[in-house]
């Protein structure tokens, strides 16, 4: 374990932050989905790093990472389906055009 745990945590915090910038600044719905995937991967990295350094012989963090992966795959499928469906109605994938529910 030449790499201290803190480095892993800081790396995943940086990747999470980059994903967060994408979610907050981009207006394209597919782009936001990509950025959310980035954030999910950053948090997964965190889980696996904790599992390796704190409970190396239990692998519970690895199981959590696998569950997160399954949920992320489902999220991408449903998210893209919703984007396609909205595109058919609004003819745009720009989030600023999705303000039909505005009050």
């Amino acid at each position: 374990m030449n790499v201290p745990l803190e480095w892993w945590l800081i790396l995943s915090a940086v990747l999470f932050g980059i994903g967060l910038i994408g979610v907050l600044l981009r207006r394209n719905a597919v782009m936001i989905l990509l950025s959310v995937e980035l954030m999910l991967n950053a948090s997964n990295l965190n889980l696996v790093a904790f599992s390796r350094y704190i409970t190396p012989n239990l692998a519970s963090g690895q199981m959590f990472a696998l569950f997160v992966m399954a949920v992320a795959a489902a999220e991408v499928a449903v998210g893209l389906a919703i984007i396609l469906s909205i595109y058919r109605n609004v003819r745009s994938v720009d989030l600023d055009d999705f303000n039909i529910f505005r009050w």
Binding site: N44, Q62, L66
Partner: peptide, 11 residues
Amino acid sequence: GFYFLLNADFV
């Protein structure tokens, strides 16, 4: 690659 580095080959 990070996962392999962390000995989590299945993940």
